[in-house]
């Protein structure tokens, strides 16, 4: 956030001309301005570390810590635990994931009924995926039905899930999305976010929102000036307006 403010402030210092005639800033002038912006290396490193920690790149974070001396916001070992949970859900081992979350912090699922329901729902989906119909029915009735009684919206989701059993070819039914891998990923990221929150950590890294702000700022500036753009975020190459 602080980086962004410095950037904007420096732009404000130059009196941009009236909107009728947009000021043209050449690449040379623009680069000079950019070079004049003072960024602390530590701030950049913190930003990178925040990204690695939040996204769960534990080895990279470890290496980055050793190389740059940047301290991670939380104990790196908790990342390993969190990633193990996430991975278990992604691979369809939901029961295993639930046990791991409970070892990490039993409060998470005890105080988060929606997440708990979604994990149980994912378990049911996995049973159906593997054709364990008997087991799926028993599980739905014993574990999920009581949650449906507690909450109307859970009941609707449950009905939708059980509908998978009705179709001969589940891959071609109205609720087929539930069987999609993207549904696993959705559940996995929900657990990931809940664990991060329980560790008082933001559930999203800061870097993507900074990049969004960059695009927003460029759009704002477009109304007042013509200047070299960053269009490709992965390379951050400046592109002249004429290009």
């Amino acid at each position: 956030m602080s980086l962004f403010r410095i950037f904007i402030n420096q732009l404000d210092e130059d009196d941009l001309e009236m909107a009728s005639s947009k000021k043209v800033i050449t690449r040379e002038e623009w680069e000079k301005k950019l070079n004049a912006v003072k960024l602390r290396k530590e701030d950049m490193n913190t930003l990178v570390m925040n990204f690695l920690v939040t996204e769960g790149f534990v080895e990279a974070a470890d290496k980055f810590q050793r190389e740059s001396g940047t301290k991670p916001e939380i104990d790196l070992s908790t990342i390993t635990d969190r990633m193990a949970v996430k991975k278990a859900v992604q691979n369809g081992h939901v029961e295993d994931a639930i046990e791991k979350v409970n070892d990490l912090n039993p409060e998470i699922l005890d105080t988060n009924p929606e997440l708990f329901f979604h994990l149980q729902q994912q378990r049911l989906i996995e049973l159906i995926r593997h054709g364990k119909i008997e087991e799926a029915l028993e599980f739905a009735q014993e574990e999920l039905a009581p949650r449906g009684e507690e909450n109307q919206s859970f009941l609707q989701e449950l009905e939708k899930t059980v509908a998978l059993l009705v179709f001969e070819d589940a891959s071609n039914c109205p609720v087929k999305d539930l069987l999609d891998i993207s549904h696993r990923l959705k559940t996995a990221s929900e657990v990931n976010a809940a664990i991060l929150t329980s560790q008082s950590h933001e559930k999203d890294p800061k870097l993507p929102s900074l990049l969004k702000m960059l695009i927003w700022a460029q759009n704002q500036l477009d109304e007042k000036a013509v200047y070299p753009h960053i269009n490709d975020l992965s390379t951050a190459q400046l592109q002249d307006p004429s290009e």
Binding site: L137, A145, L158, E159
Partner: peptide
């Protein structure tokens, strides 16, 4: 639909 209170005794 096997939800709510209909309890099959085996389960």
């Amino acid at each position: 639909m096997p939800t709510t209170t209909s309890s099959s005794s085996s389960a």
